[in-house]
Design a protein around this nucleic acid. Structure first.
Length: 872
RNA sequence: GGACGAUUAGCUCAGCUGGUAGAGCAUUCGCUUGACGUGCGAAGGGUCAGCGGUUCAAGUCCGUUAUCGUCCACCA
């Protein structure tokens, strides 16, 4: 038998164990027709990223589920991979280039992409290695990347088939433009921030008249692109102006005054300047009224088509234009006005609405099925409230802008003919225009939104569009685990993509978790410098401790604060389990894990509790209540097994009776082994390491069968009996603590109880755990108890001859206090039982429970009163 | 403007389908108790945000108010 060190050292264990799992090949998913599949695809982390606590949390949940299902006999596949993360990665490589004094344009597209691939080769596996330190049991043989050949094929197929169905189109529409990333963004990629601003009131003279209109704007510089002024048709102030024109100040352009219901008569002046190229609403109005479109900002948000302002940055232009308007007398007033500014979710730059030719996915037809599968429960969100979030979004979803003016990504498979103008969209790279067969064609330089390829992840990773064996066996996947922050980006798009291309939603459950925040509840971020590195936590406390910290103490969908102290507490728990094992091992003479024929009362108690635990844990897993399950296992190990059961076996282990010694070992070993199985999905490393050290069957703990409830080990009667003894022990300990009696002092303990037979079985426990010298069980109160310390429960009266410590007055006072409390309790219970409605309407077992409580309370009171009397 | 979440012990949070509250940390007291002081035993501490309702019974269900937070939409 191996000797274990006194303190558990995760560092010396984790790598070794992980290697052992890899060598065993147990992560590798096998398609087994005899088994049910259970599949999770990982939310692919950015290939250039580093593991942060959010990943650690997400991945711990997934690994726990996968390990549980694996032990439950499912053919499990946890498919790992990384995301090419278009903008994020491109920015990183461009930063690197900048240090060399280069831009991507200096290199050119091809060379730049080579550099990105180089970067990917260099850093792309870092996050995966970090994932491994967490203990992730991914099938690394199926590792995928959103830019690998297989995924590219899927992307191409999806793009072309959607195009053929008319669900992808190119259009000149208003989109969100990030001037820093110089690309279009989807609506989902814009974050809104409330910022203080102003409302400038500008005077636009009406042509051939002394009149003018005053428009209010928060973006005066966009006036350069104004092609109209709009009022509400029912606004009597302005009806006479409708159809007239005004002269745009500074520019001199003549622009029409139009009427549209869109204008709110209550807001501002009731007159709105129309800039169709740079405001989504103006764009819509402009379309309705055929307003001219004048683009006044280029890709860097500098003025174009703006005369003397050309080349100015948008904010610089604002200053100048306002100054010029003021000088020329067109500025009426400036009001303070807070407003929401859209910013780029990648770089934080203010986003500019710009009309631009981009590719879009037509969402309405796709959303229909994506709504149905959630409404009809084919896809369930846990917690359920997120289905509402999802549905609201899906109901109101607008067309998805999928083209990005980047180089890193899946290039759009569209070729434009210079001769006939036809667009060829093709699965294979086009060599000629499909319409006029001209070779004079050029490919669209843009790439697709990163989320376009992630949306296909649940089936592209399994081989689609090929009809592979993996796809047939593992699709649809089962559970998708992710944070609520990417429901729109990713979950929603996976669902409609799965429905459209696979005719089946990609998973039946979406398990949503919250964000990991710092100890003050702030989001962890680089700029705040409040991030905690999970690798550092693993280094300090072990992966198991980190995992347990993350999985407990939070509820699904809610954010959690991360406390390093909790990691420490969990590290202590590991150590506790480790030392329990040391205890078992140093007493172990058997080499086989089997239960004895004859079970003692305490054996039945612990086995029965363990059995009940297995059942509860199963239920909790079914409901995705992983934290609850983990806490129950923790409590069982620390309280039931360590603090009670191990202590209870000591008399047997140290006694003379060989058979008793063996049976204690057997139960200790059996329960410990079951504990390891129960705990393994949560704390894979330490449990596996301990399992190896114990006598065991099978190659590894991770492929053992998970414990299940069995009638054979259900002993409710014995459990209840043992609880009586435990209560007595607790009562004695409590009394002793109150009186400051040290454990070394072991007085005689006289027990008077109608349950003498139960206590008879418990004398050893009482002497061990209640520090009793000699335990005497009698049916009548002996005559000489006067002046002894009284300990009273509802099952027994106990006496300890510690008369030198007893202050009779204090003792009376204490007992009277206890009587008072017990009587108050009883009064409450009796009030309930005397309530006719309660007795008639409450379920029988509840009423019976109350009756039992009342009986116990009465006994307690009686016992206390007798004790009081006996004091004299 | 709309939706959602939170409000429980000093702090951070659990509490599943309603049956008079739990954990970790912190605090106090005691302990070389032959696995563990990263430990053991004991103790203190909560009108479960307020109000109203349903019910025999409400931290739990319903309504409402307040405070904080998140998301969505957005009127220039």
């Amino acid at each position: 038998m191996r000797e274990l060190p006194k303190i558990y050292d995760p560092k010396s264990v984790e790598q070794k164990i992980y290697q052992m799992w890899l060598d065993g090949g147990w992560f590798k998913a096998e398609r087994d027709p005899e088994k049910k599949p259970f599949t999770i695809v990982i939310p692919p982390p950015n290939v250039t990223g580093q593991l942060h606590l959010g990943h650690a949390f997400d991945d711990t949940i997934q690994d726990t589920l996968i390990r549980y299902k694996r032990m439950k006999g499912f053919a499990t596949l946890w498919l790992p991979g990384t995301d090419h993360a278009g903008i994020a990665t491109q920015i990183k490589v461009e930063e690197q280039l900048r240090k060399e004094g280069l831009t991507r344009f200096d290199l050119g597209r091809e060379k730049f992409l080579d550099r990105v691939w180089e970067w990917k080769e260099q850093y792309g596996s870092r996050i995966l290695e970090q994932l491994q330190t967490m203990g992730a049991s991914c099938d690394w043989s199926r590792l995928r990347f959103t830019m690998d050949e297989q995924c590219a094929k899927a992307v191409r197929e999806v793009f072309v088939s959607l195009y053929e169905k008319g669900l992808i189109y190119k259009g000149n529409r208003i989109i969100n433009w990030c001037p820093n990333c110089t690309t279009a963004l989807s609506d989902a990629e814009v974050e809104y921030a409330e910022k203080p601003g102003h409302l400038w009131h500008l005077r636009y003279p009406v042509k051939d008249s002394d009149e003018w209109v005053i428009v209010a704007t928060s973006r005066p510089e966009t006036m350069l692109g104004d092609t109209g002024v709009c009022v509400n048709p029912n606004d009597e102030r302005y009806t006479h102006l409708i159809g007239k024109t005004c002269i745009l100040p500074l520019v001199g352009r003549e622009i029409p005054i139009i009427a549209d219901e869109y204008v709110d008569t209550e807001f501002g002046t009731g007159c709105v300047k129309m800039t169709p190229c740079h405001d989504p609403n103006d764009f819509e109005v402009g379309q309705r009224h055929g307003l001219e479109q004048i683009l006044i900002l280029d890709n860097d948000a500098k003025i174009i088509n703006g005369g003397k302002y050309n080349g100015l940055d948008r904010y610089e232009a604002r200053k100048q234009i306002v100054a010029d308007l003021d000088e020329a007398g067109y500025l009426v007033k400036i009001e303070e006005h807070g407003h929401n500014v859209g910013t780029c979710y990648r770089c934080g730059t203010d986003v500019e609405p710009i009309t631009s030719a981009q590719w879009f996915v037509k969402m309405e037809p796709l959303a229909k099925e994506a709504i149905r599968v959630v409404e009809e429960g084919e896809v369930k969100f846990v917690p359920d409230r997120f289905s509402k979030t999802y549905l609201t979004w899906m109901y109101n979803v607008r067309d998805w802008c999928i083209s990005r003016q980047l180089w890193w990504g899946h290039q759009i498979p569209a070729w434009y003919c210079a001769d006939c103008g036809h667009t060829t969209v093709s699965r294979d790279d086009a060599a000629e225009c499909e319409h006029c067969h001209s070779k004079n064609i050029e490919r669209d330089p843009d790439v697709l939104d990163t989320w376009f390829s992630s949306a296909l992840w649940p089936f592209s990773t399994l081989g689609w569009p090929e009809d592979t064996e993996d796809l047939k066996y593992f699709y649809p996947t089962d559970v998708l685990v992710t944070g609520y922050d990417i429901i729109f980006f990713w979950v929603a798009r996976m669902i409609f993509s799965g429905c459209e291309h696979m005719k089946k939603p990609p998973f039946h459950t979406v398990l949503i978790h919250g964000l990991v925040r710092d100890s003050q509840g702030r989001k962890m971020s680089k700029s705040l410098g409040n991030g905690i590195d999970p690798i550092e936590m693993i280094d300090q406390f072990g992966a198991d401790a980190l995992r347990f910290n993350l999985i407990t103490g939070n509820s699904p969908g809610n954010d959690m604060r991360f406390y390093v102290e909790r990691c420490e507490a969990m590290r202590n728990f590991c150590n506790k389990l480790w030392n329990a094992t040391r205890f078992v091992m140093m007493n172990l003479t058997i080499d086989k894990n089997e239960l004895p024929e004859k079970l003692e009362l305490e054996d039945k108690w612990i086995l029965s509790k363990l059995n009940a635990l297995a059942k509860e844990v199963d239920t909790n897993f079914d409901r995705y209540e992983l934290g609850v399950a983990a806490t129950k296992i923790y409590d069982f190990i620390w309280d039931s097994y360590c603090d009670w059961y191990i202590e209870l076996t000591k008399p047997r282990l140290n006694g003379e009776d060989e058979a008793a010694k063996i049976s204690a070992q057997q139960v200790l070993l059996y329960v410990l082994t079951e504990i390891l199985k129960l705990l393994h999905p949560f704390m894979p490393y330490i449990t596996e390491e301990i399992f190896r050290a114990l006598p065991h069957d099978g190659d590894a703990l991770m492929i053992q069968t998970y414990p299940e409830f069995t009638d054979a080990l259900n002993f409710p009667e014995e459990e209840a009996q043992f609880e009586i003894i435990m209560n007595a022990i607790r009562a004695v300990r409590s009394r002793r603590a109150e009186m400051n009696v040290p454990p070394s002092k072991k007085p005689r303990l006289i027990i008077v109880s109608p349950k003498a037979d139960v206590f008879e079985k418990g004398t050893v426990y009482l002497s061990k755990l209640a520090y009793a010298g000699q335990v005497e069980i009698v049916t009548e109160v002996p005559a000489d108890t006067e002046g002894m310390v009284n300990v009273v429960t509802d099952e027994a009266r106990m006496f300890m001859p510690l008369s030198e410590l007893v202050d009779l007055d204090k003792e009376r006072e204490r007992i009277n206090r206890e009587i008072g409390k017990a009587e108050a309790d009883l009064a409450k219970i009796e009030a309930k039982l005397n309530n006719e409605k309660f007795v008639s309407k409450a379920p029988e077992n509840v009423v019976a429970q109350e009756r039992e409580k009342a009986a116990k309370a009465r006994t307690l009171i009686e016992n206390l009163k007798n004790s009081l009397e006996a004091l004299g």
